[in-house]
Amino acid sequence: MFTYIIRRILYMIPTLFGITLITFLIVNLAPGEPAALDASKMNPNISAEDIEKLRKIYDLDKPVMYRYFKWLKKILTLDFGESFKDGRKVLDKIAERIPNTLILNILAIIVSFAIGVPLGIMAAVWRNTWFDKITTVLVFIGYSLPGFWFALMLILVFGVKLGWLPISGIHTIGAEEWPFWDRFIDLLKHLVMPVIVFSIGSFASLSRYMKMSLLDVINQDYVRTARAKGVPEWKVIYWHALRNALIPIVTLFGFMLPGLIGGSFIIETIFGFPGMGRLGYDAIMNRDYPTIMAISVIVSFLTLLGNFLADVLYALVNPTIRYE
């Protein structure tokens, strides 16, 4: 097991390296240039000479591979460089958004697990009853609801018509001077709609996974044995069956790790939420190469880590799996 972990960690290094190279090439070879340049090219008051100068300052007059190795050299000292857009350190830009994104995504994951897992269990236990049928329909509706539409509907009802919830942002402007408790309530109010929208899709799919995996397990011999022994049904389900049925869910949880800081551009844009999704999207639209690269390095690192953790957790919760 130990050698396996070491090997997996060592494998991550060339993978990460390859990912950065491919990402760097793609973002640099994509048509268009950093926004400052692109915007200026269509402005009749700005001369080509000025644009050339800017290109030089950003090193864009150099070949792609030269720039890649320069970037790589800096990365090794964990220097992600400065954003082309506002000249700030990329890491600072990311750091100021991570708390927002984390709080939103952790809440969304908690909500989707808290609703999805029990819902799946109930649907499995009561399969083919009216309850199962209704939840199936509801879950499919939830799963197929377009997030942006649902978000706009929520905004229209709770933000505009009823006026109960704030529409955008993460704080009310000027809330910094409020007492802690008011500020906390204010934060929660701002989070309600984004959390609902974020969790609705994932709790729907989670409950399906949960149902399917529990159904698989319920038909296993050892469950039948447990029942034959006369173990109470709740104990059969929650003690014998559920433990094994949760194994795939653990894997899913591992896959959710990169999503924790990934954010979603569309939902964040609609709610004016200052999260990672918008940072990434803006960086791509502005061809802000340092920011794009920093985010992709972090996200791909977390994806690799998530996969790795999922595998390790898998082995931990499932004694039948052994890694050599």
């Binding site: 706009l152 229209l156 529409i167 402007i173």
Partner: peptide, 14 residues
């Protein structure tokens, strides 16, 4: 105060 609202529909709702 300049509120940064990228989405047109959300801005209209605001």
């Amino acid at each position: 105060i300049f509120k940064i609202l990228p989405n047109n529909v959300s801005a209209f709702n605001e």
